[in-house]
Write a protein that binds this DNA or RNA. Structure first.
Lengths: 238, 238
DNA sequence: TGAATAGTGTCTATGAGACAGTATGTA
DNA sequence: TACATACTGTCTCATAGACACTATTCA
């Protein structure tokens, strides 16, 4: 902690957001098409620089709102993911970026409203598979690495937290909750066992007296989030 | 990502380290007594500013080495913990700090050799209990918060990773490994069940042909780290 | 009626934990 | 021998998962 104030290096600090949602029963990420160099025209995670007087989470929420129109009440969950500080991660000058991970319900996005140009919600399968499409979508900066970490964190957190509910609206059926797990993990789960497990795990979901409008089949009971954040026992992937 | 280069705020970026070890079968943290204002004379986590041309992990390793003499080969494990960016967390000027978490075997520390003055290894019980002693040890800056997050992350990671071995030397007995868990979690574990569990979890530990010198009782087989990083199944706290 | 989804029952395998019992060293 | 620690056996309970079964809607 020895300090020679004039020798301390100062650098811009940015926030970048991995905003995940479900679209057509697939895990998807919110991307912005860059309107300026570098990486002009390339897709990137939403984000921007931290301003004076604003802490990191405030900056993340502001950028999310400015670039995508997603305001605080629409966000199911947000948490800090990790900080990326490779010296040359931004070709212009050194920038340290604090990445955030957010889960949002399926929204009437893309919101064209941002000041950053075009926004899109892209299924992660289109980015992770090695295809011509994935190549065309190659993300700017070190955003592929940030996204990969966000996806893995998301998958892991569904195991031992109740955060799957943050992908859904205030009321949901067990079927919808199961589809969150299936989409995020990319594997099918036994509906019967899942139902029992979720409803018997203390504080995961809270039953209401209301029923869903069954599109087909028997109507399902509606649930709301329970008061637990950590699941006991956890809901493990195979 | 709209950018007006001259308006972007630049700030110092620091790294702080939560270095945990075991001392007398108790979880303990490495602290440095501050030699300059602010918080002159108070205890703090080791850390310092990130330099030009140096990425974040490099900065963390350098500070650890400079302030405590702990070099790369002595570190059992190091990972990024979280980034702290509250506007007023440093009274001098705004500083964003990337915290790292490290586990080291019980070392011949404190190393007086640092350029930051006195170093000490303090049991966390002395910091978390509300006592006169804890008051005297009150950490500088937001370091209490960083430390608390480091301790909780450590406790959680022992459940589902094999990182407990990073608190030990290259060869260890199951008894020593159990003491790591007991010390970190602060609760007793059944020796028999622990032994079976650890030796049967794929890749957790690797048996050698050597035996420990029993100080009393039957000599124990020596083990080395296995090749697994994630435990299947996990070793859960009650 | 059949198709589809909701929800429950039941069986089996596996692991956690309690605790007894055996093995092998030192004093 | 006593004692201490290393390890293994065994019992009980809880949970995961496979899968059959019943319940309730719509077409």
């Amino acid at each position: 902690m020895k300090r020679k104030p004039d020798l301390v290096m100062r650098m811009p600090v940015a926030v970048d957001l991995v905003v995940l949602t479900l679209r057509n029963d697939e895990l998807a990420v919110l991307l912005i098409k860059r309107g300026i160099a570098p990486y002009l025209g390339r897709w990137a995670l939403p984000g921007g620089f931290v301003r004076d007087g604003e802490d990191l989470t405030e900056a993340a929420l502001r950028e999310l709102s400015e670039e995508t129109g997603i305001g605080d009440p629409m966000i199911g969950h947000i948490e800090q993911l990790a900080t990326f500080g490779a010296v040359a991660r931004d070709p212009r000058e050194r920038v340290v970026s604090v990445a955030y991970l957010a889960f949002v319900p399926d929204l009437p996005l893309p919101v064209a409203g941002g000041d950053a140009g075009e926004a899109a919600i892209v299924p992660i399968s289109a980015l992770t598979k090695k295809s011509a499409k994935a190549l065309a979508l190659a993300l700017a900066f070190d955003h592929p690495e940030i996204l990969a970490m966000g996806i893995e964190r998301c998958r892991a957190k569904l195991e031992y937290t109740s955060l799957a509910t943050s992908f859904l609206g205030p009321e949901f059926t067990i079927n919808e909750l199961r589809k969150v797990y299936e989409s995020v993990w990319g594997l099918p789960l036994d509906p019967g066992n899942f139902h029992r497990k979720v409803t018997k795990t203390e504080g995961f979901v809270q039953a209401t007296q209301r029923m869903s409008q069954g599109l087909s089949g028997r109507p399902a009971q509606l649930f709301t989030q329970g008061d637990a954040h950590l699941l006991h026992p956890a809901l493990l992937r195979g």
